[in-house]
Nucleic acid binder design. Structure first.
Length: 241
DNA sequence: CACATTTGACCGCT
DNA sequence: AGCGGTCAAATGTG
């Protein structure tokens, strides 16, 4: 409602591209050439949108984050982006190709499902401070909200990023993935008709480097507030394209 | 035996 | 005071 015109426009175009991409991928999964190009454009648009949202002085929905920064408050430790990507790939579990170690689970106020906290297994070995939060969507139990934050310094991440030209496991950002037939590493929900835990953390391979993901759906939930922790401050946004 | 996961408690911040 | 996040000890599994 405020001055989100630019951002809205970007997002609108992005949505359109996403649709096109979705159609392309759906119709031709053997030749992701065009899809890939669209993906690039899409990524660029997203990048721009996020940048606009993170710009100072911008009155966007997230502009307050910057203006809210108080002196002495440094949030460089964990940057989060608001990129919500819903990838419906049954074959693509939530495994990012890295090793995550669950270190806690907490029930979130207002959320019917608990939130699991994961950490890089190499945190003690290589000092990888990367962390990941996996939570289930409130209205869509089939959707998993995976929030990555922190920087991956372990060789595993480096190798992964170097081996793939894409950026599935973005350095930072909120990624909403959906795995209808695949459950995360380990999360036990109150009532789950799906596959229980027991996710052997599939090693690299299920990633399918080349075919990659691709089904953008949904909208950009900028965690619009409501009072449920809509406080997001992202100072730096890294996006490799 | 080592590693990963689980659960509870503690701490910090809002 | 409440919520979110992390740590630490215990347990289970491979």
């Amino acid at each position: 409602m405020e001055g989100e015109t630019t951002l809205a426009t970007e997002l609108d175009g992005l949505l359109a591209m996403a649709r096109e991409l979705e159609a392309r991928v759906d119709g031709d999964q053997g030749a992701p050439g065009a899809a890939r190009e669209l993906c690039a454009e899409l990524a660029a648009s997203v990048h721009r949108a996020v940048r606009l949202a993170g710009s100072e002085g911008n009155a966007g929905g997230r502009a307050s984050v910057n203006g809210r920064l108080r002196s002495g408050r440094k949030a460089a430790a964990a940057a989060r982006a608001q990129v919500r990507v819903a990838s419906m790939q049954d074959l693509g579990p939530l495994d990012d190709g890295l090793s995550w170690r669950k270190y806690g689970q907490k029930d979130i106020l207002g959320a019917p499902y608990p939130r699991a906290y994961f950490r890089c297994t190499h945190r003690h070995s290589q000092g990888c401070q990367a962390t990941k939060q996996v939570q289930r969507a409130a209205a869509d139990p089939l959707l998993f909200d995976v929030v990555y934050h922190g920087a991956h310094t372990c060789a595993q991440a480096t190798a992964l990023l170097a081996g793939t030209e894409q950026q599935p496991p973005a350095p930072f950002g909120q990624e909403q993935q959906s795995s209808p037939a695949a459950a995360p590493e380990g999360m036990q929900w109150p009532e789950e008709p799906f596959t229980p835990p027991s996710f052997p953390s599939s090693p690299a391979g299920c990633y399918t480097p080349g075919n990659s993901w691709c089904q953008l759906a949904g909208n950009y939930g900028y965690a619009a507030g409501g009072g449920l922790g809509a406080d997001m401050e992202f100072d730096e946004l890294f996006w490799n394209m």
